[in-house]
């Protein structure tokens, strides 16, 4: 893939944390706080792609992936093993 920038992949398993999981990220926030470059964002879910928003459910989305240092601290700290970085 010549010419394309490197892509850092971070995945959050919403079966473990988020609208379908047993953890509400608002009660945990550990991954948000261990990440030096603040790569992850916590937000209300958007049910059915965009509108309407569903304010009952919150989830974590990696947004600033290009700044991730791959330190793996978020992976280690997550009590649910919900995060993968690769």
């Amino acid at each position: 893939m010549l010419g394309l920038p490197e892509k850092i992949r971070i995945e959050v398993d919403y079966e473990k944390c988020g609208e379908r999981g047993k953890v509400d990220p608002r009660e945990c926030c550990r991954c948000l706080r261990v990440c030096d470059p603040a790569v992850l964002i916590m937000h209300e879910t958007l049910s059915v792609e965009q509108d309407p928003i569903d304010p009952q459910y919150w989830r974590i989305t990696p947004v600033w992936n290009s700044l991730c240092t791959k330190c793996m601290k978020c992976v280690e700290v997550c009590p649910e093993g919900a995060i993968r970085v690769f």
Partner: peptide, 14 residues
């Protein structure tokens, strides 16, 4: 997170 004209800020750096 919201897509604007098909593009959101997710991995904006990329």
């Amino acid at each position: 997170i919201r897509k604007i004209m098909g593009i959101s800020s997710v991995d904006l750096g990329y």
